[in-house]
Design a protein around this nucleic acid. Sequence first.
DNA 1: CATGAATGAGGATTCATTCAT
DNA 2: CATGAATGAATCCTCATTCAT
Lengths: 209, 209, 209, 209
Amino acid sequence: MGIPERKNRERNLRKQQIQNAAKELFINKGFHSTTMEEIAQRAELSPGTLYLYFQNKEELYASINLITLQGLFNEIEKIYSNKNLSVEKKIIKLKDGMYKVFKNDPLILRNILHVQLEDTLPALSKELLDELNKISQKSMAMIANVYEEGVRQGKFREGDGMAHADIIWSTFTGLVIWEESKRKINPKKDFLKSTLDRAFDIICQGIKK
Amino acid sequence: MGIPERKNRERNLRKQQIQNAAKELFINKGFHSTTMEEIAQRAELSPGTLYLYFQNKEELYASINLITLQGLFNEIEKIYSNKNLSVEKKIIKLKDGMYKVFKNDPLILRNILHVQLEDTLPALSKELLDELNKISQKSMAMIANVYEEGVRQGKFREGDGMAHADIIWSTFTGLVIWEESKRKINPKKDFLKSTLDRAFDIICQGIKK
Amino acid sequence: MGIPERKNRERNLRKQQIQNAAKELFINKGFHSTTMEEIAQRAELSPGTLYLYFQNKEELYASINLITLQGLFNEIEKIYSNKNLSVEKKIIKLKDGMYKVFKNDPLILRNILHVQLEDTLPALSKELLDELNKISQKSMAMIANVYEEGVRQGKFREGDGMAHADIIWSTFTGLVIWEESKRKINPKKDFLKSTLDRAFDIICQGIKK
Amino acid sequence: MGIPERKNRERNLRKQQIQNAAKELFINKGFHSTTMEEIAQRAELSPGTLYLYFQNKEELYASINLITLQGLFNEIEKIYSNKNLSVEKKIIKLKDGMYKVFKNDPLILRNILHVQLEDTLPALSKELLDELNKISQKSMAMIANVYEEGVRQGKFREGDGMAHADIIWSTFTGLVIWEESKRKINPKKDFLKSTLDRAFDIICQGIKK
DNA sequence: CATGAATGAGGATTCATTCAT
DNA sequence: CATGAATGAATCCTCATTCAT
């Protein structure tokens, strides 16, 4: 205990201070339209200081994603390994969990999709890219397991677990992107939650035996 | 018909020439990473000329999406106004129609998704923005109508038409990008058709009364 | 005649306009302390315009040196290929030729020396770097040949041609900058010509068999 | 002697520690490409500490030159005043002495020439500039005396001492710059010593009566 | 209409220097 | 004395847009 620890803690606090400022701006204005100057201003620091904590703009951007990505994985895993939940409940909970993560960091989905479309927009580091893929694969496998468990329990119609994981995941992402883009045109109306609920209600009905 | 008409026709051709060049670049490189210079080069025109047909970069970008949206929703309209189809069939047909369009021009969806995913574009002219909104709203309204017709016929569960249109549309788009991205990792396996069928089968089951 | 030719001519004029502005600044302030903004201002252009003619600052810098080297190369070649001159005369003439070039454009040597003295060789484009090296090597090779010819004719002492080319070249450049700097303290006295003559007289004596 | 002296001694040691670190970096990377941060790191100090010993970067740079400049002067003087050396030997020794100093601090020549070329790169203080000029003039005078001594002894051809000092000095500096710049392109080959020897061999032959 | 050279505002990044601890 | 985090001015370069031809 002592000075090194405190220093380290303070350093992490500063990083978070910057990440918080950056996150909000990236969400509202996008990667390109957000300037380092703006981030610095919002973080109440000078531009140069940002570079003491992050090598460049892209790394700062990437670091924000990494955090939320871990959050997404954790959320899914928590639900997946909850022994007290029925499979039907688990699917609903999965949706709620993903929604919670997304609400906290709307960037995450955008970035996952950018990676998928091999968009070179922000040149994410190979490290983060691998991390992204690894986590998303692990998450999909867990969702697939939930479905297969339901089939085994005679609750869900026969079907490939992976395919249904794709459906669950795609419905979620598709809705999020769509509602997000609608909110750009009419920022006041946010139907995401209710539409998501309805969609997963339909899915639950649809997959029941 | 006469000189004014010919002039107008020529003007539209030029616009298309520019839009085609821009479209490919925007799709491959994104909005910010594509320069007007590049677009001009690919269109075999000079940068200045672009501004004779489009007020600015953003307007050009928006106009492209207008085209894509129009093509897509023409397909929807065709199915919508087919009097011989039951509402259940219509939903299946909608999926097949959209699938056909995407199979025919896989770039279309990516382009639309790029709109949704791209950083914010502040300076769209009110005119174009309205046009974009009008078309997308009309199209979604058609899908909504199909659902509501189903409700009226006692076939579908009670529910907001618009919300279900969003669900149908989102499920479709979500699945397409997801499967497309998976095919990049394993190009030989194309599960899109079967997964789409399964997803809409689930939806149809799920919305049934 | 024709538009392309005129365009080309104008383009070259612009390049020269920029090079002239840059040359003077680079000479007076060095590479690092000269800003592109300053160059643009002196050339009565905007900063962006410079980049229409030169890829970056370093390329602009290199291009200036290319010009200077080329002038020098031409002079050396003229003497080298003159069949009527004995090797002794050629060495004297080389000195006179270099002196002439220098007198005609006193900036030349300073500029070349700046390349040599500049902190770090700027990351010149491979193209330009090759060109620079090629010319300087060809020039040195010609001087070396003159010496070796003298050796073959039994007039000069045995010795490596290249090493003697270095000596001849270095004596010249060394004297020019030295005398030039002395003239700054006492502008009226110009001993360069006579000191150069004496130096090459000594060299001629010294290399004689 | 006592505490103040020790303090002073320690202070000078710190200064040297910094100068040594800086010297190596300046030699290898040049003035502009060397950062204070790097110097601090190599000196195992913090950036701020550097400013306790030197007002700014340029003064640190200048202080290094002053040291070596004294070394150069001392070397020349030592040879000059050595009663046991013949004038011919003295000229050879002068070359060796200058070479030794240069090898120890390659910056020195670069800086002397920068001054001559009125390069404002590092804004050397007027103090150092005067010191530079004074020392170099004294050194030149000593070299001139050696030549004139040779003339008086009937060993060298008639001629102005100062002019021959210029020739000797210029040949040396010219060769050093030239070989240094060649070594930038091909760092492995270092012909300076042998070419210098040859050059002074030629000069000695050339000035002999 | 078309051109394309020129513009110049703006952004990421660097680094000498300072100052609170 | 020493530290090293923070500063912010300075610089290279880009690119959407304009305008004289």
